[in-house]
């Protein structure tokens, strides 16, 4: 229909349109500009999918996508902050003095009575998320999810040092290694201890005298980590679940 013909038509007005209808029209008009990847690259609205890895809406997962699907369970009330795990990580993976792949945070948590607080040591490391924000933002695929094990790995040769992955990681798990001129991070000792042990253990887990860090395979019912996570009487949680990254490092009190 031509514009001249349109002008001859009677104006129906917008009174009969429901507000829901108007909103849907506006939303359609604004988000239609999202031409790449369903609005995750371009959009006139804040596309919910852009926040994909970070939104609170969890994706239901009925199966583990990797085999072996490596995981780590942190029994945080066992941790005494001896830092042997940190030393083992440094020496095994040649971590420079200016960075760290894993560390231990000290928490002071209020308990039942006011003014009384409990001291808790919380080891942190890369969570090897199922929906890793760092992988999503990397422009050169320097960081990627290993298709077999689900470990988030780094190819330092491809890293341009934009540090977007550092900005995107909700767990502060990455640092820039000046020696490699690339980002470095925990890789569950993929090329060191894990390789040597035939996929059984990481350096930090092996060094822990209190069995705080339990490394294992989520697809293996015989794995200690599997058993801990699936024990019905245990409460298991992940860090910063609101970011929706689906971490593979779980926390519990033993």
């Amino acid at each position: 229909m031509k514009i001249k013909d349109l002008e001859k038509l009677n104006d129906e007005g917008v009174e009969s349109l429901s507000s829901k209808e108007r909103r849907r029209f506006l939303q359609f008009g604004l988000s239609i500009t999202g031409v790449f990847l369903g609005g995750t690259i371009l959009s006139l609205t804040s596309a919910p999918k852009v926040q994909g890895a970070l939104s609170s809406g969890n994706v239901p997962m009925t199966d583990f996508p990797y085999s072996p699907h490596y995981t780590m369970v942190i029994r945080q009330n066992h941790c005494i902050d001896c830092e042997r795990c940190l030393d083992a990580c440094r020496s095994t993976n040649n971590v420079p003095a200016h960075g760290y792949r894993t560390t231990i945070l000290e928490r002071s948590v209020p308990i039942a009575q006011k003014e009384q607080r409990e001291r808790i040591f919380m080891p942190i490391l890369c969570n090897h998320c199922n929906r890793p924000a760092c992988v999503r933002v990397c422009p050169t695929r320097a960081t990627y999810k290993d298709t077999t094990t689900g470990i988030v790995l780094m190819n330092p040769d491809k890293c341009i040092g934009c540090k977007t992955c550092m900005a995107a990681c909700p767990y502060n798990a990455r640092y820039f290694d000046e020696g490699k001129r690339a980002i470095d991070k925990c890789n569950f000792c993929y090329d060191t201890k894990l390789k040597e042990s035939g996929g059984k253990i990481t350096a930090c887990a092996a060094a822990c005298p209190a069995n705080v860090r339990i490394f294992g395979d989520l697809t293996d019912p015989e794995s200690a980590a599997y058993k801990l996570i699936h024990a019905p009487e245990k409460v298991v949680w992940v860090l910063r679940p609101e970011t929706g990254t689906l971490p593979n490092v779980f926390y519990m009190n033993s």
């Binding site: 959009s43 970070l54 999503r136 933002v137 995107a168 990681c169 990254t245």
Partner: peptide
């Protein structure tokens, strides 16, 4: 979108 993604 680039900024938004860093909502974490």
């Amino acid at each position: 979108s680039d900024m938004e993604l860093l909502g974490a």
